[in-house]
């Protein structure tokens, strides 16, 4: 399994043709206390960059974009009852949705963990 990162502060775990997407620990830290996560319906197809989810913190709503193109095959139903999972475990149990990739070459331009760490340090 490989983990990729975007400059929009999302992480993507790829296993075969399935990609699990979430927001990074840095992102949840910036957002503050998360009170609601609006997830896409299963079966929705996204082009890279489409609005995919909305994270509501106490102070604001923030869009999460589809980091890659694909079809939603599963969403994290645990977030309905416990949106704060995104704060406590953003990069594991706080995942958002899984996509069936339509174009694996889109992964090529993304960062690995070391590059993302460097990117965050530069902000």
């Amino acid at each position: 399994m490989s983990r990729y990162f975007t400059d929009e502060h999302e992480w993507i775990d790829v296993e075969g043709e399935i990609a699990t997407v979430g927001i990074t620990d840095y992102a949840q830290e910036q957002l503050g206390d998360i009170v609601f996560v609006e997830l896409p319906a299963e079966g929705t197809t996204f082009e890279k960059g489409d609005d995919a989810a909305v994270v509501e913190s106490v102070k604001a709503a923030s869009d999460v974009y589809a980091p890659i193109s694909g079809e939603v095959v599963e969403t994290n139903s645990a977030l309905e009852d416990e949106p704060a999972l995104v704060n406590s475990d953003a990069e594991e149990d706080g995942w958002f949705f899984k996509l069936r990739l339509t174009d694996a070459t889109e992964l090529e331009g993304l960062m690995n963990e070391a590059a993302y760490k460097k990117f965050v340090a530069s902000l």
Partner: peptide
């Protein structure tokens, strides 16, 4: 991600 600083 966008809109993290609604007051800014």
């Amino acid at each position: 991600m966008s809109g993290t600083d609604d007051v800014a």
